[in-house]
């Protein structure tokens, strides 16, 4: 999946499930300090992303290293690439 499409779909999750404003969704936005998510919100985010992309990321260790939106786009992209190569 193209990066552009991933960005669009991830942002849709933030807009629909977290009711954020589009202006907040800049790649450098920090999920915890700027977007205000906590560890429980991240669980909700993971569930929403799994539903949106039809992938399993709940047990992916890399999710713990996510800090910014850009990190998140990168993770989804990497998982997509891995699935395509399998």
């Amino acid at each position: 999946m193209q990066r552009e499409k991933i960005v669009k779909l991830v942002n849709e999750v933030f807009l629909e499930d977290f009711e954020m404003e589009p202006a907040q969704l800049v790649p450098d936005a920090h999920l915890f300090t700027e977007l205000g998510l906590d560890s429980l919100d991240v669980v909700d985010l993971v569930v929403a992303l799994q539903k949106k992309f039809n992938v399993s990321i709940r047990d992916d260790e890399r999710i713990r290293e996510i800090r910014t939106l850009d990190d998140l786009y990168g993770l989804i992209e990497a998982i997509g690439t891995e699935l395509e190569s399998e």
Binding site: D17, F18, E19, G36, L37, L40, D41, D44
Partner: peptide, 8 residues
């Protein structure tokens, strides 16, 4: 509201 929306 979602928990996220409610807390904010």
């Amino acid at each position: 509201m979602s928990p996220f929306k409610l807390k904010n």
